[in-house]
Design a binder for these strands. Structure first.
Lengths: 211, 211, 211, 211
DNA sequence: TCATAAACGAGACGGTACGTCGAGTCTTCGG
DNA sequence: CCGAAGACTCGACGTACCGTCTCGTTTATGA
């Protein structure tokens, strides 16, 4: 077998890790993803290149972790500030499904339009499209959690008789979310609250004329 | 203005252009997009690097044109073979909107699942996500044409009373297409005819339970 | 055999030839020999590259001819202006060999110090050192003529009893000229009239102490 | 000042340096200087191009150092083998100046005629003629040492009354050496021991007829 | 007098080498 | 004894010229 030197993660320098996250996010924001290099991250973080190669397999992996770390810290902040809220974007259940979906889709629109997170998110998405391993991580770590929230809320709606009983919530949610990410990824048309509302309307009501 | 030396396209070598298209598509298929290099394309095409740099601004631009050329040639073939069909993917109008949409969405599923075109398409999509200029070209040259077909068919359905009159076809079609590309891009779940059928069902019928 | 298409020199464009000479000399003067390119000469002369390749085998050959042309034109001018002088640098024969040699060596010093001709001369010399064919041309076309003048003058001196009869003039002249070109080529020490005078003194009188 | 990143020479790889010297000398010998490329040297030495660019500013500089290294190693060998001789070409002092000069000039003739060192030496000389910086190094590192030996020997001769007291040894030696290098550089006539002997004769005795 | 063949300007072409950048690996040295 | 520093091999970048090869366009006789 290969003697694969596995580094001892218990002795890992936290200071370096944070510095690398910061440098990576800063560089992607300033210069864009393709002009962000591992050498550049190392230099900016005041860290040896080897320290990056030791802990991450690729530039995209660094960015992914940096991004997750950022999200986690933001969530922590939010949790600290607001009470009762767990920091994630739980979908409310007011009993009015349409209103609840509009609420959360509008929030998603705002997130996607945030200029700070746009560059790294696009970079990760693009990388994930081409690299299946990274793509799987992207989905699993960034998308799946929020998708579960939708599934939960839609199930509740089914039980409440708001939603057709024969519907697969996993597919239903795609009718709502996919058009959003579609517009964002391809920049075909602007992404607005009005668009989110329309989506909810069309998806729930259906496109067909009623007899 | 800039004195940008513009090459004389009337003296362009057709043989080189074709060879470059072939080499680019072959390499992307064999080695993947990131391991496809301009140097490699030039070598494989038996062409000087400068001949590529003279006519294209980037690797992605070469691939885009190669891809469009491929599509054009395939369309030409199809047009030559089949009669009555104009080579594009016109959406049929049998009077049954649901059936027609299932037909065309299934065809789209098959196209996306085609292993030959998958690699270059993913590469272009990924590049377009990060590079707005290329993204715009991608949309304009590859997507817009088929989108227009949907718009046309949906308008006809509205006039026929099959579709709600208050609906914007430009948005309606996103309910149908976006989930498909979403699954394809993110590889969340397999892309099947059954999925296409379900989408048509959900989108036309709506998700809400009927009173 | 090869059908070696030989161009018809009677139809050669004189205007192009002159333009090429001018451009070549100007570029060597401005940018130095290594940064002078055939493409650059052609562009500056407003001439197609092929017109250069048709008539000259190499950059050095162009420069050599340009240089000879320049020399010829200067000689012509001099001949037109001064009467009695034939334009070449005939070595005077006043009966005083030492004085005559000082005169001509001082003239040579001035020529070598001329900043206008320095760059192309150095370029040609350097090329000739490495390329035997060009070196032979350099010697034959630029050096031999003046060397013959020395030989003639030294022969006359032998007949006049000024010079040892057992001496080979071909070698004797090298004692005088070589140190000059040596200093010029290697830039060891400045090249002055005083140096020329000293050389004549040492060479004629000999280095040995007299008994 | 400029922040010129200067590499840390203490961490330099000796193995690479030697390999580069060997490759450079071999290639110049085999293919000639103009067809020797930095890329070629790197490939042959099994070295990255950057390792050459990191330590040398130009192809000529590489060759110069390779050449000096070769000379140093040869001198070392000679010193190891012969006793009493320090490896350099000290000019003997037998009391007979003419004989001593003939001896050393003959040795110089042999060196210049050595086919192994000819190509690189010519290349360096040619480059030095055109590039003043390199020329200065060439003179300082390759010529000056031997010139000093001449000066020393000629001073001794003056003190011994063999040489005219009013003579500048720095100029006198040029009478002897310059004709040699002149013939070698320009390939006008063959370079033989007889020629060396004649030079000594003419220079010491003088060209003038004796009264 | 004009046709016709060449030399001409322009510049695209297949190549080679340039000098730079970054990737990922390996080595040295200081805290 | 970890980690910063950075030298190393390797490969691709985008540029500059090379020398060859068409393209029309002059131009300058000789039929």
């Amino acid at each position: 077998m290969s003697p694969q030197k596995v580094p001892d993660s218990s002795r890992r320098s936290d200071r370096s890790r944070r510095a690398i996250y910061d440098a990576a996010l800063a560089l992607v924001g300033e210069a864009g993803y393709p002009r962000t290099t591992i050498e550049g991250i190392a230099a900016r973080a005041g860290v040896g290149k080897q320290t990056i190669y030791r802990w991450w397999p690729s530039k995209a992996a660094v960015l992914m972790e940096a991004f997750l770390d950022l999200a986690a810290r933001q969530a922590e902040e939010a949790a600290g500030a607001g009470e009762g809220d767990d920091g994630g974007h739980v979908i409310p259940d007011t009993g009015d499904l349409a209103a609840d979906l509009r609420h959360v889709l509008r929030a998603t629109v705002d997130e996607l339009n945030d200029p700070v997170t746009e560059a790294p998110t696009r970079a990760l998405a693009a990388e994930g499209i081409v690299d299946p391993v990274l793509g799987a991580q992207f989905v699993e770590r960034l998308l799946d959690p929020s998708i579960q929230l939708y599934v939960t809320r839609l199930r509740a709606a089914q039980e409440a008789g708001e939603l057709r009983a024969d519907i697969d919530p996993r597919i239903a949610l795609e009718l709502l979310i996919a058009p959003l990410t579609h517009r964002w990824l391809l920049r075909t048309l602007p992404l607005t609250h009005a668009y989110a509302d329309t989506l909810v309307d069309y998806a729930l009501g259906g496109l067909s004329a009623r007899p």
